[in-house]
Computed example of a mutant assay.
Amino acid sequence: MSIRKQATPPRLITVGDVVAAHSRDLGEWTAAQIVRLDADSQTAAVLELDWSGPEPSSVADLGDVAPLRLTHHSWNGALSFCNHAWVLPRSHKVVGAMPLLHDKPANCWASGWRLGDQLARQRRWESGVHEDPIAAWKAKYTGETVNEFLSRPTAPRPEVTHLTITDIDSLDCAQLVQRFPGATWLHLHGRLGLLSAAGELNRLTSLQGIRIVDLFGMTAEDSLRPQCTPELESVDLYSIAAEYASAMRSTWRPEIPAGTYVSVVRARKPEWVEENRNNPLRDWDGREQISTATFKRAVAQYKTTRKAILHVFAEEPADVRSTRMEEIGRAYGEAFNKLDRRSGFIETVEREELFAALDHIVNEAEALHGPGLEGARDSLVVGVESVRDW
């Protein structure tokens, strides 16, 4: 469920306001101007300024400022100008207002404000440094590598403040907090994985942002609490345990006017998790252009195709496999032609996911019958390509 629409920003900002925030990349404060507000999309068009310095108390402290123009990499002098969710983060403050420095609509959208990132890149570029430095305060792991790291008796890494972990099958949050006690931004992406001891994240008292995707096992008691994480300014949850989703939504929505962005989408019940654990098309459930009926038909066709492929390798002679794979591929392509004619939902991403689903089945067949099924994979694709309209 997304944030309920409001007529005005929940934390007061108006067109012309100048907001300031501290940038970790710059080691200083930086500033931006609010150029437009859109109630329909709940966004603010934010123009970054070419300024950094000590914490300002008013617009006068900025001096004679200008918009930030980007020439690094392939920006070619474009303004650093983007639409953001219009919840002004807790760590940002309004220092006053000035006449608009730009009055055109922004044509890009970003998921977080991150003031100072572009200014830091621009200054490095101008100084002759064309590669972003490796920041000791950022760390990225896969679920497998972080669990191996957590299992070793090594010292904590308090310098890491921005931590991203992907492809999580299971993760113990108690161990995570012990090893990364200084985390302020935490991104956890699972594979319908298990997040245990999630309540321990309340020990991250400086936490500012959390994003959790496709992870389960959390209960209402594990919810983050404002009194424990008072600086939290972004709660972004997608495809997570329903009980935890409900508790986090009810706990943090009252904090939106104080500067916490809240998005809780696709709360999943345990039955959904079990049913979709081996379903590579599960992300279609609830996607904007895909109806519930279309999702169910797509999953049914995937299961039919999977059953047919596994049957070929378990029961049929090797000399007919190539022909049978082409037949199955054609049936798969034609079935999704028919589905797509009804609602036109297959775009670039969905097309790639449909081919990835076939790869998933072949990988499963290889696990059961041994490697060397590339010919079968090729034959499937030939069959699909001979008929598909998507």
Rank of each mutant, 00 (worst) to 15 (best):
A85D: 15
A85Q: 12
A85T: 08
W86Y: 01
S91M: 06
V95K: 03
M98N: 03
P99N: 08
L100G: 06
L100T: 13
L100P: 04
H102P: 04
D103I: 04
K104F: 11
K104M: 13
A106K: 07
A106Q: 12
W109D: 11
S111K: 15
S111M: 13
W113G: 02
W113K: 05
R114K: 14
R114A: 14
L115H: 05
L115E: 05
D117F: 15
L119P: 01
A120V: 02
R124S: 08
E126P: 01
E126T: 11
H130A: 07
E131C: 08
D132T: 11
P133F: 02
I134L: 10
K138T: 09
A139V: 03
A139N: 08
A139G: 07
A139D: 04
K140P: 01
K140A: 12
Y141C: 04
Y141M: 05
G143R: 10
N147P: 04
E148C: 10
F149C: 13
L150W: 09
L150N: 09
S151Y: 11
S151M: 13
P153M: 09
A155P: 08
P156V: 09
R157D: 06
P158I: 10
E159K: 09
V160N: 05
T161Y: 10
H162K: 13
I165M: 02
T166I: 08
D169C: 13
D169K: 13
S170C: 12
S170Q: 15
L171C: 07
C173K: 03
A174F: 00
A174V: 03
Q175Y: 01
Q178H: 11
Q178V: 02
Q178P: 01
R179K: 07
P181H: 00
G182H: 00
A183S: 05
T184R: 06
W185E: 14
W185H: 13
L186A: 01
